[in-house]
Design a protein around this nucleic acid. Structure first.
Length: 597
DNA sequence: GCCGTTTTCGGCCCGACTGTTTTCAGTCG
């Protein structure tokens, strides 16, 4: 079993123990162990071989043993016995809003309900409303929850949530009485998919804001309408929550609801160690606990003087705890707090740093806009250069270019550059298929006529990890390859990526001076942010590539920059923040076989 | 089950909201 699968098992064990009514801290230990494993950057096999797994924070002796068993055998008797002792329908019931482990346990214990169908029937027979701890409303809510189960449980692409949240935020900020407003949660942290949208608003007059929010056009259903907190269901099942807080609480609420949970736990622990209790409401001195230094050990930056009342924004909160500001994208509870202690938070790349993009299609293959239309749109964005990389001949499903058509395109691009019709310089490239054996789709002589080559996999997705990794490395070692396209080929919420070993690809890219793409298409966001910190440390450059198939596709750069930021990337690690001159020099140097970093 | 400059026991984040109650448990984030 691989790392991700084992993490899933641990998570499920947590849920099963919860349904059994086990010690909630034990449950939490499995959940945090699962997350720790998921976030493990190193190769699990290696960590196990070196017997270092129980040194990972959140994984102790007991979990390490279970993980090792799962890794070696793919099975775990403890897990199997647990699973056999609980009807699978109970786990499904947890997806229904309002039903947690205690209530599911009660339904099972008192009515013997084991499946969703039986639950539906019990609702229809009014058996639920008669149950102690339940009532007519619970019964109704359960029924509607069952009906919309799929839509509610679904996650949503970051980009889709981002677009709608930006528009709601703009309205919120325009309402009278709104002093500050932001969205929080995984959306603000830039996670590739989000479960819901959280808005945090500072105001002393919440009532009209609640009314506007629950009455806005985007809301298809109001699920809660309180004095300071409301929830609505948007089209597609996405839920949006709003919380209104007094302005002096705003930084605490924003930080709290931005999360992640792991990050918050660590922040709270840090506050506690200094004699304070941190919550979404503020920072309160503990009874008997005086102001101590942060952290008490005496390491870290000097904490800001003053009292919690002086905190006006998130930066003030971090500073009070002796930390440098941590951008939302880094708040995953990995090692950002340790870094912020010692001024180790880099200045992250920003959308405005991007000066051109490389992986774009035109009507020559499967794009919807012509070369000229794409160049004009790039110029309108203020970019200095644009790379055209249409598909190669083997991608016939995408109308891939033959040698002859590619030659024609190269000539047209040369003419366009000479005509000086646009201020944007156009680089001619190709998104060249990596064939199943790792060879490229075009001969070296053809590739030599181009400014750069993006090499991508578009076929034989089902190869095993070893074969696929070998295939990609062979392409990376090809002297004509400038960058590697979408590492795993995943389509978020739709298709798993092909099996590939990212660590080995990163090493190969570093050794051969090949740039790795951050494919910024909202469905891809590939290579994943989780690998970037390590890749950059090895000197691998990223290129934020929108994979635009029309001029609107350029907007996806924003999503790609978010991935880069989540991967701790600075401007220096992102190739397309370089000026036209620097890019030209780099590409020409590579063509002469000179490795430039 | 994890963790430890309070180190092998005794902690483990906490508050709002809902629906059920009549003072609170469970869920949620």
């Amino acid at each position: 079993m691989n790392k991700t699968e084992i993490a899933e098992v641990l998570k499920e064990i947590g849920v099963l123990l919860e349904l059994k009514g086990q010690n909630p801290f034990k449950v939490r230990a499995y959940q945090s162990g699962s997350r720790a494993l998921e976030n493990l950057e190193e190769d699990l096999g290696q960590v196990l071989a070196e017997e270092r797994l129980d040194k990972v924070s959140g994984i102790g002796k007991a979990l390490a043993e279970k993980i090792e068993t799962l890794y070696q055998t793919g099975e775990l008797p403890f897990y199997q016995e647990l699973k056999d002792s609980i009807p699978p329908g109970l786990i499904e019931m947890l997806e229904i809003p309002g039903l947690g482990p205690k209530k599911v346990k009660a339904l099972h214990g008192k009515l013997g309900i084991e499946t969703i169908d039986e639950l539906t029937e019990a609702c229809q027979n009014n058996q639920i409303s008669a149950l102690e701890g339940f009532g007519a409303k619970s019964q109704e809510k359960i029924l509607s929850g069952i009906k919309n189960r799929e839509a509610y449980a679904k996650r949503h692409l970051w980009w889709e949530a981002f677009i709608i949240a930006e528009s709601i935020l703009e309205h919120l900020r325009g309402l009278s009485g709104v002093e500050r407003a932001e969205y929080a949660g995984s959306l603000r942290r830039g996670l590739e998919t989000v479960g819901d949208i959280d808005f945090i608003v500072a105001s002393s007059t919440p009532s009209p804001i609640m009314d506007w929010f629950t009455g806005m056009d985007e809301a298809v259903e109001v699920t809660a309408h309180g004095e300071t907190k409301s929830s609505v269901r948007l089209a597609g099942g996405l839920q949006a929550d709003i919380r209104v807080v007094p302005v002096d609480r705003f930084p605490f609420a924003l930080h709290h609801f931005t999360g992640s949970k792991d990050h918050n736990v660590r922040m709270r622990q840090r506050a506690i160690s200094g004699g304070y209790s941190l919550s979404e409401w503020g920072l309160v001195r503990e009874e008997g606990g005086g102001r101590k230094r942060f952290p008490p050990g005496g390491h870290g930056v000097k904490a800001a003087p003053g009292s919690p009342e002086d905190i006006r924004d998130e930066a003030g909160l971090f500073s009070f705890l002796g930390l440098h500001y941590i951008p939302p994208e880094l708040r995953e509870g990995l090692d950002e707090i340790e870094a912020a202690e010692k001024d180790g938070i880099p200045r992250l790349v920003e959308a405005g740093d991007i000066r051109g993009v490389f992986h774009n299609h035109t009507t020559a293959s499967d794009g919807r806009h012509t070369l000229e239309e794409m160049v004009r749109a790039a110029q309108d964005r203020g970019w200095e250069y644009l790379g055209i990389a249409d598909h190669s001949k083997s991608s016939f499903q995408a109308n891939g270019l033959t040698e002859a058509r590619l030659e024609k395109q190269v000539a047209r691009i040369r003419e366009l550059n000479l005509s000086e019709a646009f201020s944007v310089h156009v680089f001619s490239g190709v998104e060249c298929d990596i064939l199943p054996d790792g060879r490229l789709d075009f001969d070296d002589e053809v590739l030599a006529t181009l400014d750069y080559v993006v090499a991508s996999v578009h076929s034989s997705f089902t190869q095993g990890e070893k074969e696929m990794t070998r295939r990609l490395i062979r392409a990376i070692e090809h002297p004509s390859v400038t960058m590697l396209g979408h590492l795993t080929g995943r389509l978020l919420l739709a298709r798993e990526g092909y099996a590939v070993n990212p660590a080995k690809i990163i090493d190969a890219a570093a050794a051969n001076g090949v740039i790795l793409e951050i494919n910024a298409h909202p469905r891809r966001l590939d290579m994943d942010w989780r690998h970037w910190k390590r890749a950059a440390a090895k000197g691998v450059l990223a290129s934020v590539n929108p994979d635009a198939h029309d001029v609107k596709g350029f907007e996806y750069v924003r999503a790609g920059v978010t991935v880069a930021r989540k991967g701790w990337l600075t401007r220096a690690s992102v190739f397309n923040t370089r000026s036209l001159e620097q890019v030209r020099e780099y590409l020409e140097g590579r063509k002469r076989g000179i490795r430039i970093v």
